[in-house]
Structure formats: C-alpha cells, structure tokens
C-alpha cells in the first residue's frame, strides 16, 4: 500500500502524517508513507484544500484532519 500526505508542510499536514503512521501500525499494514509538498503535484490530484490523504493514487480525504480511527477506517474500507 502506498500512502501519500499532500500539503505544504503546515501543522495540519504533520498531524495527518502522524495519525496515518499510527493507523498503519495499529492495523499492522505494510505501507509506505510519503509526504508530497510540491504544489503542482498536489493540485494534480484535484486537491485544493490541504491536508489531503491519498491511498494508492486515489484521494480519499481532503481539507481536514481526521482522527486515527477515521484514517484506519479509510485505509481498510476501500
């Protein structure tokens, strides 16, 4: 599984990245987490509100910071 965190590096993005890492550990998934800070790439996903969560090249959430449980839910329920 390939997880990307889209965002310019603001506090919200760091929080989302931390929660995604936590969710991956809790679920025992084999996933790679990557932070994307490059604006053209972010917009390329059709995302205008950061932070956004991309799982295997699909945008599953944008514009808010979910709880760890919600991230876990997004990762499993696809």
């Amino acid at each position: 599984m390939h997880i990307k965190i889209l965002g310019s590096g603001c506090a919200n993005c760091h929080t989302l990245a931390a929660r995604a890492r936590e969710a991956v550990t809790n679920l025992g998934l084999d996933a790679e987490i990557e932070a994307v800070t490059d604006y053209p790439t972010i917009v390329g996903y059709g995302v205008m509100t950061t932070p956004a969560l991309v799982v295997d090249e699909r945008v599953v959430l944008s514009g808010r910071v979910p709880t760890t449980d919600q991230v876990a839910h997004l990762l499993t329920d696809r």
């Binding site: 604006y39 390329g44 996903y45 059709g46 995302v47 956004a52 699909r58 945008v59 599953v60 514009g63």
Partner: peptide, 8 residues
C-alpha cells in the same frame, strides 16, 4: 498545472 482525479 493539470487537474486529474476526482475531486473529493
């Protein structure tokens, strides 16, 4: 910049 993907 090009838009792709389905906006959420």
């Amino acid at each position: 910049a090009t838009l792709r993907g389905v906006p959420v």
